[in-house]
Design a protein around this nucleic acid. Structure first.
Length: 504
RNA sequence: CGGAAUGUAGCUCAGCCUGGUAGAGCACUACGUUCGGGACGUAGGGGCCAUGGGUUCAAAUCCCGUCAUUCCGACCA
């Protein structure tokens, strides 16, 4: 029995269904916010672990900055404040008092505090104190935190008022070094997306009108969702000297002269979990890539007769312990025996909907044969879904099976990305015709909309045109052909290659 | 923040038009039958009908306000 809504019947509803049946998150009673449930948070913890290791490998250190930022800090960088002004949560009072039987805010603050939507301004303030000499540079820090942006139309994982992220901030002595840092971090994001999340991405740079407020250059990775929309899965900004000048991050160079530092910032958010769902989930629920699955193998005991319970559980634990000593992706396998007092089938389907990669059923028959019944999540509804495997064979091959699982997820997503990225659209008229369709599940049939790779002339008038077509330039990809062609919005001569799409 | 729709049990919804103080299915609990099956039977628990006000002898039902959710738009990771 598939979900209430499928990808084909109602894509947005399907997305919410997956989150709900997989117990990943729910809408909170606190408006616009989400509760991230253990299975969803477990995935986030795995992503954190993988990414945190990479961030530290490069030489960044974790630290923590305040949640509250004085209002005046935002006034220092004009572009920055303009970009965020419309979506800020502002603390104006410090206590409640009872007035006419109603709790009323009282103790008005001298200066209102902003609940951080991002921390460039407050971190730049610290950087200015930390940096005196070129010998103090570079500064390379990162923080795992929550941020608040007052969204008017929330969607679980994709757009909520509060979300979790990692934000890295660095300061460097030279333009080149800072720019290289921004690009290095983009590479890290792309690799983590591909290697851990099994999600292929397109690396590129944002056009001028899509840049982060206050940035010189914004780099990004863009992924293709199953309805052909683009989702920005990570972003890295080269901030030039903009924030250094507004916060006075200056240092003395080796010639004794004062110079402004060059800064960067980069981040990924819990939105990645949304992208994971729309990359891998199917009409039966979630499918979690093994490297970030909280449980990679779940063992469900089949107990028909209570007298067999002890023996079957002992066998299940023997299997779990044998599997746990196996190594996949440099770590011991994460294995769970589901001992809850529930029907075995119910448990099996629950793990299917949650998307645990491998589910093993073990019962009396398996003890007899020294085997197990293996269900491989991504093969659901195919002949390879259910297989009887011997105990020893499974223990020996489990890491390889998880590796294959990851590969298959990646290949399916990569195939979708390649097959739905049109490069044969050559005129503004063809472009209009292509984007005349609504986005819907790209199931290989005709009339589907996804990405178009083509030319852009950079004229300001194209921005309005794209708004009308409800599309945007997702990025200017790294691999430019440098051949002259025709702009897909104006038919004017153009050489810049861009990715056009609708987006989340 | 603009437009539309919706708000009744944990979930999906009926009841509202034509006022008379609550229903179904699923889920949950117990017992039983089954079960490597996305079961079945019997019994049971659970709702001051989003919220505040108004009309009325009487409001889930009619009227007004507020809040929330979903979809569309603007904005955004």
């Amino acid at each position: 029995m598939p979900l209430k809504s499928t990808r084909g019947s109602n894509y947005p509803d399907w997305y919410q269904n997956v989150i709900s049946v997989a117990d990943m998150a729910e809408v909170s009673s606190s408006p616009g916010c989400m509760v991230i449930r253990p299975w969803g948070y477990g995935i986030w913890e795995r992503i954190q672990r993988v990414l945190d290791d990479k961030i530290k490998e490069i030489g960044h250190e974790n630290c923590y900055f305040p949640l509250f930022i004085p209002l005046s800090y935002f006034q220092k960088e004009a572009e920055h404040v303009e970009g965020f002004a419309k979506e800020m949560a502002i603390v104006t009072h410090s206590r409640l008092t009872m007035q006419d039987g109603k709790l009323t805010p009282d103790g008005k603050l001298e200066e209102p505090l902003i609940v951080r939507p991002t921390s460039e301004t407050i971190i730049a303030d610290s950087f200015s104190k930390w940096v005196k000499s070129y010998r103090d540079l570079p500064i390379m820090i990162n923080q795992w935190a929550n941020v608040v942006r007052w969204e008017m139309r929330p969607r679980l994982f994709l757009r909520t008022r509060e979300f979790l992220w990692q934000e890295g901030h660095t300061a460097h002595a030279t333009y080149e070094e800072a720019e290289k840092e921004a690009k290095t971090m983009l590479d890290v994001y792309a690799k983590v997306a591909q290697n851990a999340l099994a999600m292929p991405v397109i690396k590129g740079r944002k056009p001028e009108h899509e840049k982060f407020p206050g940035a010189v250059d914004t780099y990004c990775i863009e992924a293709m969702m199953q309805d052909g929309r683009a989702l920005q899965a990570g972003t890295s900004h080269f901030l030039g000297q903009n924030f250094a000048k507004s916060a006075n991050i200056r240092f003395q160079n080796n010639e004794g002269k004062q110079e402004y530092a060059y800064t960067t910032s980069w981040g990924v958010t819990t939105r990645l979990i949304g992208s994971l769902i729309m990359t891998h989930a199917d009409d039966e629920g979630m499918v979690v890539p093994p490297k970030i699955a909280p449980q990679q193998v779940v063992i469900v005991p089949i107990i028909k007769d209570k007298s067999q319970k002890e023996e079957i559980l002992a066998y299940a634990h023997k299997l779990a312990s044998a599997l746990s000593s196996q190594i996949y992706d440099g770590e011991k396998l994460r294995v769970k025996v589901d001992e809850r007092d529930k029907e075995a089938v119910d448990k099996m389907w629950e793990w299917t909907r949650k998307g645990a990669p491998l589910v093993c059923e073990v019962g009396a028959r398996d003890i007899q044969n020294n085997g197990l019944m293996l269900r491989t999540r991504n093969k659901i509804n195919t002949p390879d879904w259910k297989k009887v495997v011997s105990f020893d064979n499974f223990v020996q091959t489990v890491s390889e099976r998880l590796g294959t699982f990851h590969q298959e997820l990646y290949q399916a997503a990569d195939k979708r990305l390649k097959e739905n990225q049109r490069t044969d659209i050559k005129t503004a008229e063809e472009m209009q015709a292509y984007f005349s369709h609504q986005n819907s599940w790209i199931d290989g049939s005709e009339g589907k909309v996804a990405f178009v790779r083509g030319k852009w002339c950079e004229d300001p008038e194209t921005v309005e045109k794209m708004k009308e077509m409800k599309i945007s330039i997702r990025c200017i990809p790294e691999d430019q052909t440098n051949e002259e062609g025709v702009c897909l919005l104006t038919n004017k001569k153009a050489t810049l290659d861009v990715i056009y799409a609708r987006s989340y």
